[in-house]
């Protein structure tokens, strides 16, 4: 039995008939061809499949596509605008936040979700928010720096009205 779903992915609307057991990650990759979202562990641990569903970071290997019906989804393909990388993406580049890159789409989406909610997180807050994302290359140090880089960059490009906590930060 197929179910009809309608979702908005990276600003584009899609209508599909899917099997109820189809996972969101398989829908994104196999039906829509958006292979930027990776499948790592497939057991809800590694976070490589992280996307935003209605503004919240979720593991798309642990959501059925039918549960996303009517939802708004953002994947790593939706971050760059007009050929310019998002500051979170740039941060991973600038701070060497990856080696093999397999976990990177999930790391970037989890980091993006954090910075939407908390534009200037402490190191502890960054590590807490990224607990659900495993990286076997970097030892996480550079990933934390990448998020801090993005946080500073975003504060510069979109100045927020209230003064942000800046104590303890290295100057650029």
């Amino acid at each position: 039995m197929l179910c009809n779903i309608q979702v908005t992915v990276n600003g584009r609307s899609y209508a599909s008939a899917v099997e109820p057991r189809l996972l969101l990650v398989h829908y994104l990759r196999d039906v829509l061809g958006l292979t930027g979202t990776h499948i790592g562990c497939d057991t809800s641990q590694c976070g490589a499949c992280t996307v935003l569903l209605n503004g919240k970071a979720v593991k798309s290997c642990t959501v059925f596509a039918v549960q996303a019906d009517g939802g708004i989804i953002l994947t790593v393909e939706g971050l760059a605008k007009d050929g310019k990388l998002h500051p979170v993406q740039e941060g991973f580049w600038e701070e060497h936040g990856l080696q093999c890159g397999f976990c990177t789409p999930g790391m970037i989406m989890a980091s993006y979700a954090l910075l939407q909610r908390n534009p200037n997180p402490t190191e502890a807050e960054i590590r807490h928010a990224l607990e659900g994302n495993l990286c076997r290359c970097t030892g996480y140090q550079n990933i934390v720096r990448a998020v801090q880089w993005a946080s500073r960059q975003m504060a510069e490009t979109q100045p927020t009205p209230a003064p942000r906590r800046r104590a303890g930060r290295r100057s650029r």
């Binding site: 970071a57 593991k59 642990t62 959501v63 807490h128 607990e131 659900g132 994302n133």
Partner: peptide
């Protein structure tokens, strides 16, 4: 609640 699973798990 803050100690359950991880951010993605807590969001769902």
């Amino acid at each position: 609640a803050s100690l359950i699973g991880d951010m993605q798990v807590r969001n769902r």
